[in-house]
Amino acid sequence: MGDYIEDLRKVVGRRPIIMCGANVILINSQNEILLHHRTDRDWWGLPGGAMELGESLEETARREVFEEVGLECGDLKLFNVYSGEKQYYKYPDGNEVYNVTATYLCNNYTGKISVDLSEGRDARFFPLERIPSNLSYTIKGTIDEFIERNRQRNL
């Protein structure tokens, strides 16, 4: 499969584009979530990325999780879809995007965490009360929403 966004950038340059993608909140048996420490910024985020031509959002989510952290997702449940001004992102290379991101939940996965060092420094599970403060701003609201829903469920 080609790199759709890279091909698109050859035509539009660094101008803002709408980029569809998916990420996954992976939950372990201790109700901790997996965060991925990116190499392009000193930020933690969710494993995920851009959709390629012909992919479904679920296929994107599964592929990105496997590529970034080496885990294979079992069942995926749609958590929410995020878009709008809060999803604007400017990459270190100057490329600008407005993300439309489908976030999935997954608590059944297989494999061992293995970080692709071209995209990440680390990946590990965090208790909900100890989420790092240096979260990517585009996923901070997602994590906050997950924690709040989890808190309400446990009241």
Rank of each mutant, 00 (worst) to 15 (best):
D116S: 10
N134L: 13
Q87A: 07
L105P: 04
D116L: 06
T101C: 08
V24D: 07
G94M: 02
S133C: 09
I113C: 01
N23C: 14
K90T: 11
A123G: 02
S56V: 05
V100E: 07
E59W: 01
E55F: 07
N31K: 13
F66N: 09
C106E: 01
D122Y: 03
A22M: 12
S56I: 09
S83C: 09
E68K: 06
L117E: 14
G111S: 12
F125M: 09
Q87H: 10
M51A: 12
S133M: 13
R63W: 07
M19L: 15
L135R: 08
E64G: 01
A22G: 12
P47R: 05
I139A: 05
G45M: 10
F79L: 13
E72C: 12
S114I: 04
E119W: 13
L78Y: 06
E55S: 10
E64Q: 13
Y98K: 02
V115P: 03
I131W: 10
F66M: 08
I143A: 11
E58V: 05
V100Q: 04
I131L: 14
R62M: 02
R121E: 13
A50I: 03
I131C: 08
V97W: 00
E72P: 01
V65A: 00
S133T: 15
T103R: 03
S118K: 12
F66A: 03
I139Y: 07
E55Y: 11
T103C: 14
R38H: 11
A22K: 08
N28E: 04
T142C: 14
I139N: 08
E72S: 13
S118H: 12
D93C: 03
V115W: 02
I25P: 05
N99D: 04
S118N: 14
N31W: 07
E64C: 06
N31C: 09
T103K: 03
Y91N: 05
E64P: 04
I113H: 01
G21L: 07
Q30F: 11
Y109E: 01
S133D: 15
E32W: 05
L78D: 05
K90E: 14
I33S: 01
C20D: 14
R63G: 03
L135F: 14
D75I: 11
R130K: 15
G120Q: 05
L26Q: 00
L46N: 00
V115T: 10
L105Y: 02
E85D: 15
V100G: 02
K90I: 08
S136D: 15
H37T: 01
N108W: 04
R62G: 00
D40W: 06
S114P: 01
E58T: 10
T142W: 06
R38A: 04
I27D: 01
E72R: 15
G49C: 06
C73K: 02
